[in-house]
Structure formats: C-alpha cells, structure tokens
Amino acid sequence: MICPLAHFEEVYKTDHGAVYQCSRQNCYWLDFAGGTTAFKVSDFFNFKKKVDAVDISAMIIDSSRTADFTIIMPFRTPRCFVLDINAVLNLRELLAGAKFMIELNSVVNECLNVTPDRAFRPQTTNH
C-alpha cells in the first residue's frame, strides 16, 4: 500500500502496474504484481538498469527450471522481485514508459522555465 501521507501523482500506468511520484517525499512508488515499493530517484533508475540488463534470450534458451525466473533485490527496499519472462517484459514496459514521462516532465519544466515557488526569482521592473 502506498503511504497515506504521500502526495502522489501518476507518472505512467499500464495494464500490469503503475509508477507514481510522491512530491512530498521526493520518491517514486512502483505498483507492480500486487505490491508497492518506494524508490529514491537514483535507486529507481538503477532498478530500471537492472531490469533492462536481464538476459531474456538466455532465460528462453536455458531449459533448466531455475532459468524460468530471475530475482532482483533492489537495495534499500524490503522487496524481492521474482520475475518470469512475462513479468520482466511487463516491468520493462512500465519502467521505460515511466522514465520517458519523468524526462519529458524535465524537458517541459525547462521549456516553461518553471521555478519553484520557494526559489528566489528576481523581480523585474517596468520603466
């Protein structure tokens, strides 16, 4: 369950899960396979790299039973992801979409020259 104090906004959603952003705690929540996990910004991108690095071809070719699943245990989370090939592909799709939206948000912010309310913004005077 996502923290009730969290102020979260949807980043990206698929049929298999969703990624939310909590702007109060500056973290991302991953809702996937019946569980939710909070990630710090850098941890989230590291987790994506780990999921992207899973060798799907090797999982398919290897006929041993242990090759049907891969285990990813991200640091600083209580969760252990046990993923079959379908789950890896679904998670990849979700994380890739989320990453795109996060980067798009950065670009949009940059284009709009949005500054946070609390940041210093020089006053302009009209003569």
């Binding site: 500056n26 948000n105 950065s106 940059e110």
Partner: peptide
C-alpha cells in the same frame, strides 16, 4: 509536476 530528476542531478544520463 515537481521535477525530481533535476533536483537529484544536473547531469544528463548520456
């Protein structure tokens, strides 16, 4: 939406 990515890093991923 708050830009968490740029709050964390000023470096482009590439």
């Amino acid at each position: 939406m708050k830009d968490l990515l740029r709050l964390k890093t000023s470096l482009n991923e590439e």
